[in-house]
Simulated scan of single mutants.
Amino acid sequence: MNTHPALPAEESAALTRGVTLLSVVTAAVLVGMKLAAWLASGSVALMASLADSGLDLIASLATFFAVRYAAAPPDAEHRFGHGKAEAFASLFQGGLVFASAALIGREAVVDLMAPHPLKAEGWAIGVMAMSTLLTGGLIAAQTRVLRRTGSVAVSGDRAHYASDLGSNLIALVGIAASAWFGVGGMDALAALLVAGVLLWGAIGVFRQAANQLLDHELSPEARGRIIELVSRDARIKGVHQLRTRAAGPYVHMQMHIDLDPELTLADAHVVLVDAEKRVLEEFPSADIIIHADPRGKAEPHGGAFAETSRAQA
């Protein structure tokens, strides 16, 4: 996973709310445009793109609500917050993409066996060109937000629309080839390619959502940076048992540090708090738990994830 961005949870939530609203509006506009053009032209490639955009609208709505729920503060029943709602939204998106690809593939095969001429080709081409531009603009906005927030829901939505961008281009080429050059079957072949692009995009969405749901560690770079920040205090003799995971706009981390066994409890507490502050400067949305061990005198810890090696970090 990538290094978690250094943004406060409130700012990250505001950015994700804004870009998910833009996603919903864009999807609604695309559905309206493609529906009108498909009814006029009868293009299978355009129908495939319309079906995909319809599911995009549903997926964008799911993401719209998921990022708002994920940003809600912890409560009595969810003491670690609600961040994983974003990953569930990504799984939902992946399922819709697979359904869309199956529908598109079926219609393309039927049209290949019994091709039909297109109507109103110019309008269909114009709509697909406009759809490509709108989708490209949305992806650019999502990319800017993703660089700052690391939101898995926005990442899944962007992957979805990136697949759409490819499918729009493929459909545009297929419609143009059938309309301008009279190449039979190109419309349906383009629809089959759209289905393949969607399936590939869905695999990426599932993989990223699974990483967060299965508590995948942060990147080696992020983990190394955390250890470096904690270790800046000479009173900290070592860092081990570092565990990290992301959950929507939040990142959770816990670790053990070695301290001089002669330090008083009050002094050890000051060392821990200072270490937390250094980490929070670069990971402001972090939830941090630090356990202090007396160096050379600590007993092995038990439990389900008992420490097996002091070298483990």
Rank of each mutant, 00 (worst) to 15 (best):
residue 297 K to Y: 11
residue 199 L to G: 06
residue 292 A to I: 03
residue 114 A to N: 13
residue 171 A to C: 06
residue 131 S to M: 10
residue 51 A to W: 02
residue 297 K to C: 09
residue 19 V to M: 08
residue 237 K to S: 10
residue 126 G to E: 05
residue 23 S to W: 03
residue 258 D to R: 08
residue 205 V to W: 02
residue 227 I to C: 07
residue 170 I to D: 01
residue 311 A to D: 13
residue 148 R to M: 12
residue 6 A to D: 03
residue 251 V to C: 06
residue 147 R to G: 14
residue 141 A to D: 03
residue 251 V to E: 01
residue 308 T to V: 10
residue 75 D to V: 11
residue 224 G to T: 07
residue 126 G to T: 06
residue 34 K to S: 09
residue 274 D to W: 04
residue 75 D to F: 12
residue 124 A to F: 00
residue 192 L to T: 01
residue 68 R to Q: 15
residue 86 E to C: 08
residue 124 A to H: 01
residue 196 G to R: 03
residue 116 H to W: 07
residue 276 E to V: 06
residue 143 T to K: 12
residue 252 H to D: 04
residue 160 H to R: 12
residue 28 A to F: 11
residue 251 V to R: 02
residue 158 R to M: 15
residue 244 T to Y: 08
residue 220 P to E: 09
residue 263 L to Y: 04
residue 33 M to G: 05
residue 135 T to C: 08
residue 141 A to G: 07
residue 11 E to C: 02
residue 234 A to V: 12
residue 53 S to F: 01
residue 278 R to P: 10
residue 3 T to K: 14
residue 69 Y to C: 05
residue 93 Q to L: 12
residue 147 R to N: 13
residue 176 A to P: 13
residue 145 V to M: 08
residue 43 S to I: 07
residue 130 M to G: 09
residue 188 A to H: 03
residue 28 A to Q: 09
residue 244 T to M: 11
residue 29 V to T: 12
residue 150 G to F: 04
residue 206 F to C: 03
residue 164 D to E: 13
residue 171 A to L: 00
residue 57 L to S: 01
residue 63 T to A: 15
residue 18 G to K: 08
residue 97 V to P: 00
residue 168 N to P: 01
residue 96 L to T: 02
residue 69 Y to Q: 13
residue 210 A to Q: 10
residue 232 R to E: 13
residue 71 A to Y: 01
residue 308 T to H: 10
residue 179 A to V: 04
residue 238 G to R: 13
residue 220 P to L: 11
residue 301 H to A: 12
residue 198 L to K: 05
residue 278 R to Y: 09
residue 59 A to I: 07
residue 83 G to W: 02
residue 196 G to I: 10
residue 169 L to T: 08
residue 240 H to D: 08
residue 222 A to T: 06
residue 49 S to F: 04
residue 181 F to S: 02
residue 33 M to P: 00
residue 159 A to S: 11
residue 180 W to I: 14
residue 277 K to A: 15
residue 25 V to L: 14
residue 149 T to W: 09
residue 202 A to I: 05
residue 9 A to Y: 00
residue 259 L to N: 04
residue 145 V to D: 00
residue 296 G to N: 05
residue 58 I to G: 01
residue 73 P to Q: 07
residue 17 R to K: 10
residue 125 I to A: 04
residue 22 L to I: 06
residue 147 R to P: 00
residue 153 A to W: 06
residue 82 H to K: 11
residue 280 L to R: 14
residue 150 G to L: 10
residue 186 M to Y: 08
residue 108 A to E: 04
residue 189 L to I: 13
residue 51 A to M: 11
residue 181 F to H: 06
residue 190 A to W: 02
residue 259 L to S: 00
residue 27 A to I: 10
residue 48 A to F: 00
residue 76 A to E: 14
residue 68 R to S: 12
residue 2 N to Q: 15
residue 86 E to W: 11
residue 144 R to K: 14
residue 2 N to K: 15
residue 213 L to S: 06
residue 242 L to K: 05
residue 3 T to R: 14
residue 298 A to G: 01
residue 308 T to Y: 05
residue 66 A to C: 08
residue 2 N to M: 14
residue 243 R to G: 04
residue 282 E to V: 11
residue 8 P to G: 05
residue 211 N to T: 09
residue 124 A to G: 03
residue 271 V to H: 04
residue 87 A to I: 07
residue 58 I to L: 15
residue 242 L to E: 02
residue 310 R to G: 09
residue 159 A to D: 07
residue 295 R to A: 15
residue 265 L to N: 07
residue 295 R to Y: 14
residue 162 A to C: 10
